[in-house]
Amino acid sequence: MHEYPITCEIIGIAEDYVRRYGAQEVLQINLVIGEDSGFIGDSIEMYFEVIAKGTLCERAHIEIEYIKPLLKCVGCHKLFERTSASFTCPLCHQIGRPTARGKEFYIKSIEVDL
């Protein structure tokens, strides 16, 4: 649901760069989305098809790199993927704390015609 305004934001940022670089249009937008960011790539792609019409991103393709969240064990300091109902480290069975890994939500690069 909240991917609508977010998609507008993505298009706005990309258009900004097109103008800054004196290009004609955006050809590709490379996004990075952590699976714990709360943003859904499929929704962004769906809104993009509609919203990009008539903008400098009209013909652009969206490429999404997804990142799996990792917890960090307080005992052995290893990073691990959580299971559904626990935060326990599979190696030493101590608790894992959230890390920034998996919360990414940014535009890595855009490709323009130059």
Binding site: Y17, F105, I107
Partner: peptide
């Protein structure tokens, strides 16, 4: 195609 690295936080 020119690729511009921007690393821009969407929020």
């Amino acid at each position: 195609n020119k690729k511009i690295e921007i690393f821009t936080n969407i929020l």
